[in-house]
Design a protein around this nucleic acid. Structure first.
Length: 453
RNA sequence: GUGGAUGUAGUUCAGUUGGUUAGAACGCCGGAUUGUGGUUCCGGAGGUCGUGGGUUCAAAUCCCAUCUUCCACCCCA
């Protein structure tokens, strides 16, 4: 196995079994998206670097896969830039395209580009791979799929409500017990203002986000390191330790930040959202989590994150409201809200729970055993009829040994095998064998089609 | 990007202080059974030990480099 071929780091091949399972996930997600009136779009794997750069922060730019220009690009680079040996400077000269890093930024570009053809609010879903030049780990790849739903051009909180319903619906169908954590960037901003560090929201939230992972002390230490004043950190403590039900938390937090403008707005939004949600019988738990901060810095309102209750694996779905994503492309004041389902992690959860539906593996329903040329001629018309009736069926392409053919059926988990040799041909019938029970009976062509379809 | 582990048949793993021809289980192929699979029994194929250098009389074993996978940080789905 010295010179085996291989694929790039962090990428994967998908086998037939894996594809069946992945499609099961994608199909249920799509079905729910459509149920709520969302329409699909697709965008190219590559975007202009000008579209991508600067949208994900400094770290994000490093994680972009860049595509080399075609032709003899290096000869066009001025010598003085080559001599500097700075990758960053040379890159801008030899690469102007990159692979998409997520689906949200291409979507924003799409909306701005086709603003005159789109009627708002625009509800779209998009299920495509994205690429990140990250260092891979388990459940973290350089190529992975995102399933995004967004509605853009509407400020209504009804959209947030619907997204929570979609989350509930999808995971109900996939049989995953979940908890949806919700926070609001405006509340976080209110907190920052109330403790006198109004313009340090990002530093504060990035640190606070790690609360349940590294604990209070280290979070405080990190904030101090990021330059947050000690008095501010002290004022923050009671807020982080808030306990009780969502409405209790809201009442308490209002006392602290109700006098700030953003804070009050955020509280009002959350009250409305949770007010709506109470009216539905949701299977998933929904709770306010003030430590939820999500990394991306374009969120401006509600923030969502979904976790499995039974399998420890990080978030399997997340998103939020962004007020000005299209602004960077020259179309200001368009608000959107959306979430993204992580297909690969959902896959891992389902594997660990062992809850992929079993039937989904069977692709072929019936296999004709091949006994030879005469028998082929006898079977082929019936095979065609079965297919016409929508029955997935196949004939073994060679008249190999019975054992090999039966084994093939076994491996492919084909539930029925049809045998037609000399005796069947004489009687004008077929032997239908149920591979599960081993039972077999002699039936006519009509009966065969009837049973299988 | 920083730090740390890992790599031996298709798969999961053994392999002693460097020492002859590198093993097992499962899987695969064939036979027992030339029209009956998933069970059983018998037999067989398959590895230049991730790759490239180096040390040594001798390397799967020690050293260096490189790649893969994994873990932590960073960030995130």
């Amino acid at each position: 196995m010295a010179q085996k071929p291989s694929i790039p780091k962090g990428t994967r091949d998908f086998s037939p079994v894996e594809m069946v399972r992945r499609n099961y996930i994608f199909d249920t997600i799509k079905e729910v998206f459509r149920l709520y009136g969302f329409q699909p779009i697709e965008t190219p794997a590559m975007e202009n670097l000008s579209t991508l750069m600067g949208k994900y922060g400094e770290e994000g730019d490093k994680l972009l896969f860049k595509i080399l220009n075609s032709g003899d690009f290096i000869s066009k680079v001025p010598d003085e830039i080559l001599d500097q040996k700075s990758s960053a400077k040379i890159t801008t000269k030899i690469s102007e395209k990159g692979l998409r890093y997520d689906l949200t930024v291409p979507f924003a570009r799409y909306v701005v580009q086709y603003r005159n053809d789109i009627s708002f609010p625009f509800k779209r879903y998009q299920i495509q791979p994205v690429w990140r030049a990250d260092r891979p780990q388990k459940g973290r790849y350089r190529e992975f799929y995102q399933c995004d739903v967004d509605v853009i051009g509407s400020n209504s909180l009804l959209n947030e409500v619907e997204l929570v319903q979609i989350i509930d619906d999808v995971f109900k169908r996939l049989k995953i017990n979940t908890v949806v954590k919700i926070n609001n960037r405006k509340i976080l901003a209110g907190i920052a203002e109330a403790i006198g560090e109004a313009n340090r929201i990002i530093d504060i939230t990035v640190a606070v986000d790690k609360l349940d992972k590294i604990g209070m002390e280290k979070v405080n230490a990190e904030m101090l390191e990021r330059g947050i004043s000690e008095s501010a950190i002290e004022k923050l403590q009671p807020i982080l330790l808030l306990e009780g039900t969502t409405s209790e938390k809201l009442v308490q937090i209002e006392k602290v930040i109700g006098n700030t403008e953003v804070g009050a707005k955020g509280i009002a939004e959350m009250k409305t959202l949770f007010g709506y949600l109470e009216k539905f019988e949701l299977e998933t738990d929904v709770e306010l989590d003030l430590t939820l901060a999500r990394g991306l810095n374009y969120y401006t309102g509600a923030i969502f994150e979904v976790k499995s209750k039974d399998v420890q694996i990080g978030s399997i779905c997340g998103g939020g409201r962004y007020d000005d994503l299209t602004g960077i492309f020259g179309m200001p004041n368009v608000s959107g809200v959306g979430i993204s389902f992580g297909a690969e992690r959902i896959y891992d959860v389902l594997i660990q729970q062992d809850s992929f539906p079993k039937e989904s593996l069977e692709i072929t329903k019936a296999l004709f055993v091949n006994f030879g040329e005469k028998e082929e001629a006898y079977c082929l018309p019936i095979l065609a009829k079965l297919r016409k009736n929508g029955v997935n069926a196949e004939i073994f392409p060679e008249s190999s040994k019975m054992k090999k053919q039966m084994n093939y059926a076994n491996r492919k988990q084909i539930p029925y095998v049809i045998l037609a040799g000399e005796s069947e041909m004489e009687a004008g019938k077929f032997t239908l064998k149920n591979m599960d029970s081993g039972e077999q009976k002699l039936v006519s062509a009509e009966e065969l089609i009837k049973i299988l379809s």
